[in-house]
């Protein structure tokens, strides 16, 4: 049976008729066609599906779309400026070669921005701990950590 679900995605109110079992990530990718949010492991381990909900990061493959009813959801598509200027965290990932294939990157960036906002001046060790829920199978994490350290600094400086 289908039900109506409504929320704000990237600042815009959206409504969709979905099956009750629809996952939030399915709503985002298949109903709203925002395909920047990825499905990697589909078992809550890899974090490629990370989005922001009401100011916190969550794994959109591990929750029902219905659980996000009325929520303020932000995906990777909302991160860069309208003119295409990269967010300081995205710019840092580019600068420090914080990606190879790029599959995990949207989740990494969403988590990194949230972490940097809430933990300015975090140590490298804290950054590594914050990445526990995001897997990368290419880089060995070293450049991702470097990018987040730099992006975090740039975000603090941009305030």
């Amino acid at each position: 049976m289908s039900v109506k679900v409504s929320m704000k995605v990237n600042g815009k109110p959206v409504s969709a008729e979905v099956e009750e079992r629809t996952l939030l990530v399915t709503l985002i990718r298949e109903h709203l066609r925002l395909t920047g949010t990825h499905v990697g492991c589909d078992t809550a381990q890899c974090g490629a599906c990370t989005v922001q909900m009401n100011g916190n990061v969550v794994k959109s493959c591990s929750m029902l779309a219905m659980q996000a009813e009325g929520a303020d959801v932000r995906t990777i598509e909302s991160v860069a400026a309208a003119d295409g200027t990269l967010h300081p965290m995205q710019a840092a990932f580019k600068e420090h070669h914080g990606l190879q294939c790029g599959f995990c990157t949207p989740g990494m960036v969403m988590n990194a921005i949230d972490f940097a906002k809430k933990n300015p001046g975090a140590s490298e060790h804290e950054v590594r701990e914050a990445l526990e829920g995001n897997l990368c199978r290419c880089t060995g994490y070293h450049n991702i950590v470097k990018a987040i350290m730099a992006g975090s600094k740039a975000m603090a400086g941009a305030k």
């Binding site: 969550v58 929750m63 988590n111 972490f115 829920g133 995001n134």
Partner: peptide, 9 residues
């Protein structure tokens, strides 16, 4: 418990 994202839910 788990990771940052899991702890939020």
């Amino acid at each position: 418990i788990g990771d940052r994202q899991v702890r939020e839910m």
